[in-house]
């Protein structure tokens, strides 16, 4: 087992050791690194590709720092800036039975690889039975004052594409468990990482093999008065809003979708039927976002249980602005969720 020795801080993915402490906590980003490292140690078919991921540099966010030293340049491949080409090359590798994990430097750049994802990789199994077991890791989301091209949440494009699977973990444990499940899945999976959680969020992560099945939501908070359905970084804003509502005697349930494709319809309908009032929240823009599908599903299949119109909250229908007051106006947060949920509870 490779150990990195004592380092002065705990969120460096390099210092992960084989943990025996079940109470140990990892940052969200360290959990991603741990999943990658464990899967690469387990399966020689798993390899990494992406821009600037190799060497001591280890990627724009350092997720793969130290990986080349352990696994070699053969399995940690630095690519030219050619997303369309190298994602398609990953498809070719996957067709040959390898399991490439491709790092997009930012989720915003995934549009450069759009054809190779939605036209080739996503359709191949349906068309002629070729399995494409790759994962694209896409560092997404904003609130970081990173402007229109380093803040996006483009999951809706891919949820709308047959043949893909899409996940968006909100906790360190799910970051690990969903990534391992994605790598082992025989289909193309897009794994949306939440950049604002990378080093700000720490939590318990089970050591060793830990798998969170694709397509299963998590009931993050049990409540009775209304349901907040969300995913990604907005989970924590929703939980904060729920705490404040609780102080006022409003008991909010919070469902973390975790997987966006396939959606956990059972869990969505169960919470809608239980509380009769639903607020769907995501950081991506609201128009034609994943929340629209969730709301439509509830309207179609749980209408009789509803006590209020399903509410949605998402980003505005604008490019994501840079300046702090503009981005804050664009983006949902705990305060806005609290206000919307309070109004919904009073409906």
């Amino acid at each position: 087992m490779k150990t990195a020795g004592a380092l002065p801080f705990t969120d460096d993915p390099n210092m992960l050791q084989s943990p025996t402490d079940v109470a140990r906590e990892l940052t969200y980003i360290a959990a991603i690194s741990e999943a990658l490292r464990e899967e690469m140690r387990r399966d020689p078919n798993v390899l990494l590709m992406g821009e600037d991921i190799a060497g001591e540099f280890g990627g724009a966010f350092k997720v793969t720092k130290g990986f080349e030293a352990e696994f070699g340049a053969r399995r940690v491949i630095n690519t030219p800036i050619a997303e369309l080409g190298f994602v398609a090359a990953a498809t070719g590798m996957a067709l040959m039975g390898l399991r490439p994990v491709v790092e997009m430097q930012f989720a915003d750049f995934i549009s450069s690889a759009f054809d190779s994802i939605v036209q080739f990789a996503a359709t191949t199994h349906y068309r002629w039975g070729g399995a494409v077991p790759w994962v694209i890791r896409a560092p997404a989301d904003g609130g970081l004052r990173a402007g229109p091209f380093h803040s996006q949440n483009p999951e809706a494009w891919f949820v709308h594409t047959p043949g893909l699977k899409v996940v968006a973990p909100a906790t360190p444990a799910d970051a690990k468990g969903l990534l391992i499940a994605a790598i082992r899945d025989d289909n193309p999976v897009i794994y949306f990482e939440s950049k604002p959680l990378y080093r700000s969020l720490k939590g318990h992560v089970p050591p060793g093999e830990y798998i969170v099945p694709l397509g299963k939501a998590n009931l993050a908070r049990v409540g009775a008065d209304l349901s907040i359905i969300t995913y990604g970084a907005m989970l924590h804003q929703a939980l904060a809003a729920a705490e404040r509502l609780a102080q006022e005697g409003v008991d909010a349930e919070v469902l973390d979708l975790r997987s966006l494709k396939p959606l956990d319809k059972e869990a969505i309908l169960a919470t809608a039927r239980k509380t009769g009032k639903v607020l769907v929240v995501h950081a991506a823009n609201k128009l034609a976002g994943v929340g629209a599908e969730v709301a439509a599903l509830i309207a179609e299949e749980a209408f009789e249980w509803l006590d209020a119109p399903v509410q949605r909250m998402g980003g505005l229908d604008t490019p994501i602005p840079f300046s702090p007051p503009l981005e804050d106006a664009y983006r949902p947060n705990a305060e806005k969720i609290y206000a919307a949920a309070r109004a919904l509870a009073a409906y």
Partner: peptide
């Protein structure tokens, strides 16, 4: 490997096969 209409997408996919 079957092809898609979006030529030349078979090129990078074949490159990936060659890389394997």
């Amino acid at each position: 490997i079957g092809f898609i209409s979006h030529l030349p997408h078979s090129l990078p996919v074949a490159l990936g096969a060659a890389m394997s």
